[in-house]
Design a protein around this nucleic acid. Sequence first.
RNA 1: GGAGAGAUGGCAGAGUCCGGUUGAAUGCACCUGACUUGAAAUCAGGCGUGGGUUUGCGCCCACCGGGGGUUCGAAUCCCUCUCUCUCCGCCA
Length: 430
Amino acid sequence: MLDAKLFRTDLSSLAAQLMQTRGFELDVALLESLEERRKALQVKTESLQAERNSRSKNIGKAKAQGEDIAPLLAAVNDLGDQLEQAKQELKEVQTELHAIISSIPNLPAAEVPLGKDEEDNQEILRWGEPRQFDFEPRDHVDLGEGLAKGMDFDSGAKLAGARFVVLKGQVAKLHRALTQFMLDLHTEQHGYLETYVPYLVNHETLFGTGQLPKFGEDLFHVQGATEQQIPLSLIPTAEVPVTNLWRDEIADAEQLPLQYCAHTPCFRSEAGSHGRDTRGLIRQHQFDKVELVWLVQPEQSMDVLETLTGHAEAVLQALELPYRKVLLCTGDMGFSAQKTYDLEVWLPSQEKYREISSCSNMGDFQARRMQARFRVKGGKPELMHTLNGSGLAVGRTLVAVLENYQNEDGSVTVPVALRPYLGGLEKLGG
RNA sequence: GGAGAGAUGGCAGAGUCCGGUUGAAUGCACCUGACUUGAAAUCAGGCGUGGGUUUGCGCCCACCGGGGGUUCGAAUCCCUCUCUCUCCGCCA
């Protein structure tokens, strides 16, 4: 959420900025009229309340002195209805304003390149050389199925439907090894606190990180056993539960920065991506991810974004997977982000770099929604800045390892860094 | 699943029975000042959050787990939801 003060002081330039960077159309006239009504109604409501409070106090006093309070009661009679009506109207206007404001995306940082879509993203660097194959490389589906049916999409479809998979044997173990490797790297080398968090969260939590109210259709929602039970949703990323650890909390300034990592499954409905990446593991309803989250003081956040992205890169480098780092343009960034780097890993079968990590600085956007704050000793509470990044998406890393490390006979060499996690195994299949 | 207890400011903890100058005693923590060479201790004062309005001083409103109700007036009474704790049962 953006600072409400922006809407009062600088509405037209805010609207221009949102249009230019996000292509987001702000209804200035509507906001202005709502804000005008809000102001009038709030002043009216509060003055009626003040009036009521003082009269009620007088009644209390009179009663304490044994005076006759009947005339005082009569005088306050008509206030109730007026107040009730004013409150009601105010509530409606505020609800409407809140709905609009909580659906406005974050403002990109100044250095983020202007652009419409991924075409306008800016490549920052390439690491590693895509391997030259002296045979036709298979894609991960063929490779996975070839490894003793270690990647079984038919079973996934039978059990749950399209975009689900069953992993078995060496492929399942490789998947686990990747997860372990990433967690160990981040907790032992990069200073993150490992966390285990709920995979189902409530709506306040989803509002905090920006998934609600706007992106509810991207999520899987879970109905409780009874009507009254509060509705929960499956997390689309560990960013949601981990960042919300600090919702409605005030940290001491010395506690910051906070670094968390978490391995969780992620659940996405993929509504609106019909027909995209239908083959293979690239786009599933359920996938595992190791997520990195930072909570920091505002002036640190841009430096920390570089650090955080570096930690995700370290995984790719350790696995010796060629990748590139891309600075997303304004139009390609997520709703809550101020600045985002994507890491894209080389996939030989597609002869393309594909997203495997996304690292973002959200600024105070999520913190304002969550009321996640910190306090310098003796000072006022201030909003934190929040950051998160994948370190990495496990399923896509599995794809990258299989494809980049494949041999002509369909076997797959195990990256050296992973061998300790596979009991020293050097090769899958073959 | 059954029975009971509870949720109050950064923390601890009164107030809830009997509704009224209670945004809330007290303690801790924190800030300022005095004392001290400095520190500790002691003393005096200050010290919640969000919002509205104002050039400013200030004034006003809301908030005692969430929502709703009763009332001129609710931390206090009623309903409801959530969470926590204790005991029993069950279970990974």
